[in-house]
Deep mutational scan, measured.
Amino acid sequence: ITFYEDRAFQGRSYETTTDCPNLQPYFSRCNSIRVESGCWMLYERPNYQGQQYLLRRGEYPDYQQWMGLSDSIRSC
């Protein structure tokens, strides 16, 4: 899974293949995501807390595409 700070896969990015309890050191906001394979559970707060979103393989050019309430993703 790759997270992008800006919409349409622009700006600083961070890629991971494992669970991350705290994504804050890698980016300040998340406006687009690419899921290369599988399913990922994302959380608005660190340590798997807050609103959660299940994303399947695909491209999400805007946080509203995954029904996000904000551009805050802090763990996965």
Score class of each variant (00 low, 15 high):
residue 1 I to M: 03
residue 1 I to L: 02
residue 2 T to G: 03
residue 2 T to S: 06
residue 2 T to A: 03
residue 2 T to R: 05
residue 2 T to K: 09
residue 3 F to M: 07
residue 3 F to S: 00
residue 3 F to W: 01
residue 4 Y to Q: 00
residue 4 Y to G: 00
residue 4 Y to P: 00
residue 4 Y to L: 00
residue 5 E to W: 03
residue 5 E to A: 09
residue 5 E to K: 04
residue 5 E to N: 04
residue 5 E to L: 03
residue 5 E to I: 15
residue 5 E to G: 05
residue 6 D to I: 03
residue 6 D to R: 11
residue 6 D to L: 12
residue 7 R to S: 05
residue 7 R to E: 11
residue 7 R to Y: 03
residue 7 R to V: 13
residue 8 A to H: 12
residue 8 A to G: 13
residue 8 A to Y: 06
residue 8 A to I: 11
residue 8 A to W: 07
residue 8 A to V: 07
residue 8 A to L: 11
residue 8 A to D: 03
residue 9 F to S: 02
residue 9 F to M: 06
residue 10 Q to P: 00
residue 10 Q to M: 03
residue 10 Q to C: 13
residue 10 Q to T: 13
residue 10 Q to K: 15
residue 10 Q to F: 07
residue 11 G to Q: 02
residue 11 G to T: 03
residue 11 G to Y: 02
residue 11 G to D: 02
residue 11 G to R: 04
residue 11 G to W: 00
residue 12 R to D: 06
residue 12 R to I: 12
residue 12 R to L: 09
residue 12 R to S: 09
residue 12 R to F: 12
residue 12 R to A: 08
residue 12 R to N: 08
residue 13 S to W: 11
residue 13 S to G: 09
residue 13 S to K: 15
residue 13 S to L: 04
residue 14 Y to F: 15
residue 14 Y to G: 02
residue 14 Y to E: 02
residue 14 Y to N: 04
residue 14 Y to D: 00
residue 14 Y to C: 03
residue 14 Y to K: 04
residue 15 E to W: 14
residue 15 E to M: 10
residue 15 E to N: 14
residue 15 E to L: 08
residue 15 E to F: 09
residue 16 T to R: 07
residue 16 T to H: 11
residue 16 T to W: 11
residue 16 T to G: 06
residue 16 T to M: 14
residue 16 T to K: 10
residue 16 T to I: 06
residue 17 T to G: 11
residue 17 T to R: 13
residue 17 T to I: 03
residue 17 T to A: 10
residue 17 T to N: 03
residue 18 T to F: 10
residue 18 T to N: 13
residue 18 T to R: 04
residue 18 T to A: 14
residue 18 T to P: 01
residue 19 D to Y: 04
residue 19 D to G: 06
residue 19 D to M: 09
residue 19 D to T: 05
residue 19 D to I: 10
residue 19 D to H: 07
residue 20 C to V: 05
residue 21 P to D: 15
residue 21 P to K: 12
residue 21 P to S: 04
residue 21 P to R: 05
residue 21 P to I: 12
residue 22 N to T: 14
residue 22 N to S: 11
residue 22 N to C: 05
residue 22 N to D: 11
residue 22 N to E: 06
residue 23 L to R: 00
residue 23 L to I: 08
residue 23 L to D: 01
residue 23 L to N: 01
residue 23 L to M: 12
residue 23 L to K: 00
residue 24 Q to V: 11
residue 25 P to T: 15
residue 25 P to D: 15
residue 25 P to Y: 03
residue 25 P to E: 14
residue 25 P to K: 11
residue 25 P to L: 12
residue 26 Y to K: 08
residue 26 Y to G: 13
residue 26 Y to C: 13
residue 26 Y to V: 13
residue 26 Y to P: 08
residue 26 Y to H: 07
residue 26 Y to D: 04
residue 27 F to L: 06
residue 27 F to T: 14
residue 27 F to A: 15
residue 27 F to G: 04
residue 27 F to H: 06
residue 28 S to Y: 10
residue 28 S to L: 07
residue 28 S to G: 13
residue 29 R to M: 14
residue 29 R to Q: 05
residue 29 R to L: 12
residue 29 R to W: 08
residue 29 R to V: 10
residue 30 C to Y: 02
residue 30 C to I: 06
residue 31 N to I: 04
residue 31 N to S: 10
residue 31 N to T: 08
residue 32 S to P: 01
residue 32 S to N: 01
residue 32 S to E: 00
residue 32 S to R: 00
residue 32 S to A: 06
residue 33 I to T: 02
residue 33 I to A: 13
residue 33 I to R: 00
residue 33 I to W: 01
residue 33 I to C: 14
residue 33 I to P: 01
residue 33 I to K: 01
residue 34 R to C: 06
residue 34 R to F: 06
residue 34 R to M: 04
residue 34 R to H: 04
residue 35 V to A: 02
residue 35 V to C: 03
residue 35 V to S: 02
residue 35 V to I: 00
residue 35 V to M: 01
residue 35 V to P: 00
residue 36 E to L: 07
residue 36 E to Q: 07
residue 36 E to M: 12
residue 37 S to A: 03
residue 37 S to C: 06
residue 38 G to E: 10
residue 38 G to I: 04
residue 38 G to V: 07
residue 38 G to S: 11
residue 38 G to Q: 01
residue 39 C to Y: 10
residue 39 C to V: 11
residue 39 C to D: 05
residue 39 C to N: 05
residue 39 C to P: 14
residue 39 C to M: 09
residue 40 W to F: 15
residue 40 W to T: 02
residue 40 W to E: 00
residue 40 W to D: 01
residue 41 M to C: 09
residue 41 M to R: 10
residue 41 M to G: 08
residue 41 M to K: 08
residue 41 M to A: 07
residue 42 L to V: 10
residue 42 L to P: 00
residue 42 L to C: 09
residue 42 L to H: 00
residue 43 Y to S: 14
residue 43 Y to C: 15
residue 43 Y to L: 00
residue 43 Y to D: 01
residue 44 E to S: 07
residue 44 E to C: 14
residue 44 E to A: 09
residue 45 R to Y: 15
residue 45 R to K: 14
residue 45 R to A: 09
residue 45 R to D: 06
residue 45 R to F: 12
residue 45 R to P: 00
residue 47 N to I: 03
residue 47 N to Q: 04
residue 47 N to W: 07
residue 47 N to F: 06
residue 47 N to K: 12
residue 47 N to T: 06
residue 48 Y to N: 05
residue 48 Y to E: 02
residue 48 Y to C: 14
residue 48 Y to V: 00
residue 48 Y to M: 15
residue 49 Q to M: 05
residue 49 Q to A: 10
residue 49 Q to V: 06
residue 50 G to A: 03
residue 50 G to L: 00
residue 51 Q to R: 11
residue 51 Q to P: 03
residue 51 Q to V: 10
residue 51 Q to I: 14
residue 51 Q to A: 10
residue 52 Q to Y: 03
residue 52 Q to P: 14
residue 52 Q to K: 14
residue 52 Q to W: 05
residue 52 Q to F: 14
residue 53 Y to F: 10
residue 53 Y to G: 05
residue 53 Y to P: 00
residue 53 Y to V: 09
residue 54 L to C: 14
residue 54 L to V: 12
residue 54 L to A: 10
residue 54 L to G: 07
residue 54 L to P: 06
residue 55 L to V: 08
residue 55 L to T: 03
residue 55 L to K: 01
residue 56 R to W: 09
residue 56 R to Y: 15
residue 56 R to N: 13
residue 56 R to I: 07
residue 56 R to H: 15
residue 56 R to D: 06
residue 56 R to V: 13
residue 57 R to I: 08
residue 57 R to D: 14
residue 57 R to P: 10
residue 58 G to H: 02
residue 58 G to A: 03
residue 58 G to P: 01
residue 58 G to D: 15
residue 58 G to R: 04
residue 58 G to K: 04
residue 59 E to M: 09
residue 59 E to Y: 11
residue 59 E to K: 11
residue 59 E to R: 04
residue 61 P to F: 09
residue 61 P to K: 11
residue 61 P to C: 07
residue 62 D to F: 13
residue 62 D to N: 08
residue 62 D to T: 08
residue 63 Y to F: 12
residue 63 Y to H: 03
residue 64 Q to Y: 04
residue 64 Q to H: 15
residue 64 Q to P: 10
residue 65 Q to E: 13
residue 65 Q to H: 07
residue 65 Q to S: 09
residue 65 Q to W: 05
residue 65 Q to D: 10
residue 65 Q to F: 03
residue 65 Q to Y: 12
residue 66 W to K: 10
residue 66 W to A: 13
residue 67 M to C: 04
residue 67 M to H: 10
residue 67 M to G: 06
residue 67 M to P: 08
residue 68 G to S: 12
residue 68 G to H: 13
residue 68 G to C: 15
residue 68 G to E: 08
residue 68 G to L: 09
residue 69 L to M: 04
residue 69 L to C: 14
residue 69 L to P: 07
residue 69 L to F: 15
residue 70 S to G: 10
residue 70 S to D: 07
residue 70 S to L: 08
residue 71 D to Y: 09
residue 71 D to T: 08
residue 71 D to E: 12
residue 71 D to R: 10
residue 71 D to N: 10
residue 71 D to G: 09
residue 72 S to E: 06
residue 72 S to D: 03
residue 72 S to R: 11
residue 73 I to K: 01
residue 73 I to Y: 03
residue 73 I to Q: 01
residue 73 I to D: 00
residue 74 R to C: 13
residue 74 R to N: 15
residue 74 R to D: 15
residue 75 S to V: 03
residue 75 S to W: 00
residue 75 S to P: 01
residue 75 S to T: 01
residue 75 S to N: 00
residue 75 S to K: 02
residue 76 C to H: 02
residue 76 C to I: 14
residue 76 C to F: 02
residue 76 C to K: 00
residue 76 C to M: 04
residue 76 C to R: 00
